[in-house]
Design a protein around this nucleic acid. Structure first.
Length: 455
DNA sequence: ATTGAAGACCTCATACTACA
DNA sequence: TGTAGTATGAGGTCTTCAAT
């Protein structure tokens, strides 16, 4: 796709907003103050709109914008900022700038030497060294990722050559894909300079917004899923492990993914009183030391939460179990079911909803529930705060969008059927928490009513 | 198999330096 | 002058290894 001029009109609303934020961020970073802050941002946006991608920066008459060029320094800074950020913006959205487009036409005359061919050769070579042949199918995806980052690196700098950059980008890429990569092994396998690689990696991670925002919790959930399936443990173990991961995430998120995996396994094993495989076995196969797990439990669960009494795992099993249950069992429970569920006229239902049971019900029935809407609905009607979270299912996998409609149906039908959902904030009612075993049957009733209604 | 002490290693923030 | 690269140090995390 060649875009020679890109006006603001060409950008959709979301992109416009992002661009605006980018510019305002730049202005904040640079410490422009008061009137100038607003003016620069306005100028950037204004000229962005007028000139778009068809840029000859020297023609941007920003001086005039600042009352007949009284502040050339600011005008110069503005010009630079615009140039730099418009490219950043284009790269991050996969939009081609005219410069890139020209460059592409040029190199395509020599297909043998072009970047993609060079990349493909090196990519395949690296996969052989890493013994990861199954990743050949991801070559194109990796190239796009590689190219996006490379385009942000100035010419003539240390990490721009493909030989230097590729190991770094591939490391990030593999981590993003959830592969179990150990930094030191990786460096050894590829026989590259450690210090240079690490310095480059740091710099590239800054460029790679995708890597920075990668959802580590999801990756660990995926690893848990693979581990537990491999061990042949049942679904209940997996569900509890994911539950524990969610509840202890804030405590454990600073550690590495492998240590997290083994720590969550250990906690789940203790909670469900499973004997084997042993923690040490799991640690050995994962490639970490067992003491790393002990360190996490001792420091990040006991110490950080101000809980005394940890001696060692073996002697603290009862205590660990209590902590897990206190933290994981009460978090998603909103309230118990309250009688009467409905009266004989079938018009005035009262539902005290328990999100745990609700969640498992939705999962079992393969429904997808948008909890934002649930929260909004409840807040709108009752002004209560609710602690619920489920945008993805228990394994962190996004559900298809079309299933969302079922949820809309559910709430519309609930309203029209005269259901009223009451809920209490668990933080305000810590003593009022009981597990609502009967919620499932309640939900069955509701769904049955809805299917009759089909609204 | 499990534990804990000691020290190696890593990460992050910050300051400094070299270079275009 | 701006920025990439490097140095430093503090604090957190992990591994090694000896002991049980």
């Amino acid at each position: 796709m060649k875009i020679k001029t890109l006006m603001n009109e060409d950008l959709n609303k979301q992109l416009q907003e992002e661009f605006k934020n980018l510019i305002f961020n730049y202005v904040s970073v640079k410490n422009f103050k008061g009137r100038h802050k607003t003016n620069i941002a306005c100028a950037l946006l204004k000229f962005g709109k007028i000139i778009g991608w068809n840029i000859n920066f020297n023609k941007i008459d920003i001086e005039n914008y600042f009352a007949s060029g009284e502040n050339k320094e600011l005008a110069e800074a503005t010009r630079k900022a615009y140039r730099s950020y418009i490219h950043q913006f284009a790269n991050s959205h996969g939009i081609e700038t005219p410069q890139q487009s020209r460059k592409k036409t040029k190199t395509s005359r020599h297909p043998k030497d072009n970047l993609m061919n060079k990349f493909n050769k090196n990519y395949k070579k690296t996969l052989i060294l890493l013994n990861l042949h199954e990743l050949t199918k991801d070559m194109k995806e990796c190239f796009i990722f590689f190219n996006n980052i490379r385009n942000q690196i100035p010419k003539g700098t240390k990490y721009r050559p493909i030989e230097k950059l590729l190991p770094i980008i591939m490391y990030i890429f593999l981590k993003m894909k959830g592969f179990n990569i150990n930094l030191n092994n990786y460096i050894k396998q590829l026989d590259i300079n450690k210090e240079s690689f690490k310095t480059g990696l740091k710099a590239m991670i800054k460029q790679s917004s995708k890597y920075q925002i990668r959802d580590r919790k999801k990756l660990v959930a995926k690893k848990l899923y693979l581990l537990i399936t491999k061990l042949g443990l049942d679904d209940a173990f997996l569900k509890r492990a994911i539950n524990i991961l969610t509840c202890f995430w804030e405590n454990l998120k600073t550690t590495t993914e492998d240590v997290l995996l083994c720590t969550i396994y250990t906690l789940t094993k203790i909670d469900l009183e499973i004997k084997s495989p042993s923690v040490s076995q799991i640690c050995t196969t994962t490639g970490i030391r067992q003491s790393a797990v002990i360190y996490q439990i001792k420091n990040n669960i006991f110490k950080r939460n101000g809980i005394p009494g940890f001696k060692c795992i073996k002697n603290s099993i009862g205590l660990i179990k209590k902590i897990i249950q206190a933290k994981c069992d009460k978090l998603p429970v909103i309230n118990s079911l309250e009688k009467p569920i409905h009266n004989n006229n079938n018009t005035n239902y009262k539902v005290y909803l328990d999100s745990t049971s609700f969640t498992s019900f939705i999962e079992r029935e393969k429904l997808y529930l948008d909890y934002e809407q649930l929260i909004d609905y409840i807040k709108g009607h009752f002004g209560n705060e609710v602690k619920v979270n489920l945008h993805t299912n228990a394994y962190g996998i996004e559900m298809p969008v079309d299933i969302l409609n079922i949820q809309k149906k559910l709430f519309n039908a609930l309203k029209q059927l005269g259901y009223t959902i009451f809920t209490d904030n668990i933080v305000n009612n810590p003593d009022n928490i009981t597990v609502a075993n009967s919620t499932t049957s309640l939900m069955n009733n509701i769904i049955r009513d809805i299917s009759k209604y089909d609204g």
